[in-house]
């Protein structure tokens, strides 16, 4: 019996400048490693999506990928806080 795979991680993939016009090709290469696209952002050359945690290093090795980072989040103070 093998344990179930870990949950997919939400990641942000940043493309190298030289590959900005090849986003569809890079998306295909990312998908070959199980990456699921949530959003392609052509203006900033960033692709958001989900992937198995252990696949991140393989994504990083795809030519044209500048960085693979876990997607973070921000949280404002409650609206009745004095400091916002």
């Amino acid at each position: 019996m093998s344990s179930p795979p870990p949950a997919d991680l939400e990641v942000v993939v940043t493309l190298d400048d030289a590959y900005l016009d090849q986003m569809p090709t890079i998306v295909m290469k990312l998908e070959a490693h199980g990456f699921k696209v949530l959003q392609s952002m052509t203006g900033i050359g960033v692709i958001a999506g989900t992937v198995q945690p252990d696949a991140c290093s393989r994504l990083q090795n795809i030519p044209g990928v500048k960085a693979v980072e876990a997607s973070g989040s921000v949280q404002l103070a409650p609206p009745d806080s004095e400091i916002q």
Partner: peptide, 9 residues
């Protein structure tokens, strides 16, 4: 008041 990097980007 919360948001993910993806939406901000």
């Amino acid at each position: 008041g919360s948001g993910a990097d993806m939406g901000i980007l």
